[in-house]
């Protein structure tokens, strides 16, 4: 078997495993909360990103730039969904316009700029850029405006952009979950053990980021041992993704629902009093 295809198949395992939780949620949850849809969307993005990353790196996509474009678009939209999931879970008004703008405006703008530059370069020039600048570290090409823009936006810009998103959304997520935990315990003190799950979600998101950073930094295994490490890490990653989904499932009471349940019970007791 082609070794590249073998590595692609290895990458496919965690990509498929990441989908287990969303599929389980769609088939078994009754009903599926908005927050759970958002987490599912995020996990679909993660799964697609792994597939595109592998397909791009190991020659499954045989095109100068389509693989890069797909991978970039999917990657920059992953963390916004994580943020929207946390907003839906932890705030009674869900994700506000401001939240959505914070989450989605930068990746949309980034993608537009990126795609315009790539299309401007065209297939031949992009291929040249990839060969010379990315592979052989020959920076003489970057004297040209579009090659330079490509290198800044497509390479450094991408790394920086995703890293900032990662730190920002996981940090913000941690604080949101901390506030949510307080509300959960206020709502029902017996949910204290459940409230601990909130922190597990942030912790697992952080852990999966570390694994992905490692995998992205070391994409080409050269020895069997390195490949083994890569494979184990990807298996851990998919287990982490599944656990994250499970913890999110345990947090099945969003703040919105807590408030609605409280209002409904107040309404009901009022109407019962009136009846009596």
């Amino acid at each position: 078997m082609n070794p590249d295809l073998l590595i692609f198949l290895i990458f496919l395992t965690p990509a498929m495993a990441t989908l287990i939780w969303p599929i389980r949620t769609i088939f078994t949850s009754k009903p599926v909360l908005l927050a759970q849809w958002d987490l599912s969307a995020m996990q679909f993005m993660v799964s697609l990103a792994i597939v595109f990353f592998a397909a791009n790196n190991y020659g499954i996509i045989n095109h100068p730039y389509i693989g890069d474009v797909l991978y970039t678009i999917v990657c920059v939209f992953t963390f916004p969904f994580y943020y929207i999931f946390l907003c839906e879970l932890t705030r009674h008004q869900g994700a506000t316009l401001k939240d959505r703008r914070i989450a989605f405006m930068p990746p949309i703008l980034y993608c537009i700029i990126f795609v315009v530059i790539v299309f401007n370069l065209g297939e031949e020039q992009y291929g040249e850029y990839a060969q010379r600048v990315l592979m052989r570290k020959d920076y003489s090409l970057t004297q040209n405006f579009f090659y330079n823009a490509m290198h800044i936006f497509g390479y450094w810009g991408f790394e920086l952009f995703v890293f900032i998103q990662m730190v920002f959304f996981i940090g913000l997520g941690y604080f949101r979950l901390r506030r949510y935990r307080v509300r959960l315990i206020e709502y029902n003190p017996s949910l204290k053990s459940k409230a601990r799950s909130a922190f597990m979600v942030a912790g697992l998101a952080f852990l999966s980021c570390l694994i992905i950073i490692y995998v992205v930094m070391n994409p080409y295994p050269e020895t069997v041992a390195q490949m083994g490490v890569l494979y184990v890490l990807l298996i851990v990653f998919s287990a982490v993704q599944y656990m994250m989904g499970e913890y999110a499932n345990m947090l099945d009471i969003s703040v919105k629902q807590m408030l609605m349940a409280k209002r409904d019970s107040d309404d009901l007791s009022n109407s019962n009093t009136e009846q009596q």
Binding site: A55, I60, I61, N62, H63, I66, G67, E123
Partner: peptide, 9 residues
């Protein structure tokens, strides 16, 4: 033309 029949696509 360049993506014609591309396996992955």
């Amino acid at each position: 033309v360049n993506l014609r029949g591309e396996y992955f696509i």
